[in-house]
Simulated assay, not measured.
Amino acid sequence: MQKFNLIATCAAGIEALVGRELRDLGYETQVENGRVRFQGAVKDILNANLWLRTADRIKIVVGEFKAFTFEELFEKTKALDWGTLLPMDAEFPMEGRSKNSKLHSVPDAQSIAKKAVVSKLADVYHRRTRFPETGAKFPLEVVINKDRVMLTLDTTGSSLFKRGYRIEKGIAPLKENMAAALIMLTSWKPDMPFWDPMCGSGTLPIEAALIGRNIAPGFNRDFQCESWDWVPDELAEQVRNEADEKADYDTELQIYASDIDGNMVEATKHNAQEAGLAYDIHTKQLAVQDFKTNLLNGVIVANPPYGERMSDKESIIRLYQQMGRVFKPMKTWSKYFLTSDLEFEQHYGEKATKKRKLYNGSLRTDYFQYWGHPDFRKRHQDA
């Protein structure tokens, strides 16, 4: 059974979460900036694609080496074992990136690396004419950082944040893997109430329901590697069947989604239905200022509007002030808010228990965390 050196790529700031997910799946990891290294066979590639909630892609590291000249890049790339990965009719586009390196021209690096792969395949398949590239796609990338080259093969295809359920979108929607990361950074457990009071198209509550049900986030989509001849169809089916057996469809969830915009509430309903979670998420059209609940010991997670994506700054400040008036008295609830407004605490009217720097796409944001004080006596009485 062939073992591969693998990386799970991710957004800056959530590498530790990806590492934790991989360790929970049973892998030894090495956490680096923007990625986590691990090893595995074909089944592990499928498992990681299927189960990782916070990663972007799973890539095979074909080779790593130092290169200071294009000749070095060509020879060392050609020396790698491309024949075991790429069939003769493979389509293998080559992307590229370079930073702080002598080989700073990305187009040249891509071209040289591609020519090296072609030269190696010509030797492997005893073919001197041009390769047809009419078969399955094998996306390659050459990344050069401080003169160190990494050549990778992308097993994922469309980024892992594309779960397949979001058929309707709001303004500046939160990516699904970032939404999962926000939830995993909270104290929420499936036996606790969860509420998103500014739900937009419902990404946060849907991701919470997927976590609460232990449903693999990639269950309803395909991955690039499933089109490759050395990834058996029956193995992919086996991995999905094993994932389905681990899902919990019995636990009662208390997940709530509300928004002032009725169209967004409807979008949340449609997306939840597409995800097969329509009965797990309770939706309601509701303004923040009218928010009320008798539930205790819950978690609020919200991605309120930022100044960057709404022109009326004053309305955002008023919203943050309303949030403070409504949510601060909820002492048993923990509250988590993602915003790029560094003055959020001032408008909200309370200093956060903790702040964490995250990147929502390319935008620097802070995750303001307000930890609640659970009413354990009440919880035990209710139990």
Rank of each mutant, 00 (worst) to 15 (best):
S201P: 05
Q254Y: 06
T203Y: 05
S201L: 10
P193I: 08
M198H: 00
A272M: 07
A247R: 12
T186R: 01
A181L: 10
D222H: 14
G262R: 04
E245M: 07
N263W: 13
C225T: 05
P232G: 06
Q238A: 12
D261Q: 05
L204K: 01
G212T: 06
A272C: 05
Y249R: 06
A236E: 08
L185G: 00
V265C: 13
I183Q: 00
N177K: 01
L182P: 09
R240Y: 01
E274R: 15
A236Y: 12
E234W: 13
P193F: 02
A243N: 11
A208P: 06
I206D: 03
F219L: 15
S258G: 02
K284A: 12
V239K: 01
G200M: 11
P205F: 05
E237Y: 03
A287N: 10
M192V: 02
E245H: 03
L235A: 13
W195Q: 05
I211C: 08
Q285A: 15
A181F: 04
G202F: 10
G202W: 00
N220G: 10
L174C: 02
N177M: 03
Q285Y: 08
N271S: 06
E252T: 09
D280T: 08
A236F: 14
P197T: 03
K175N: 07
E207C: 08
E226C: 11
I215Y: 11
E274P: 01
E252I: 10
L253R: 02
A247G: 00
P190K: 02
A236M: 08
R221E: 13
D280I: 03
F219W: 11
K269W: 14
A208L: 07
D229R: 10
P232I: 08
V288P: 05
K175F: 05
P232R: 09
T268Y: 00
A236L: 05
I183R: 06
D229Y: 14
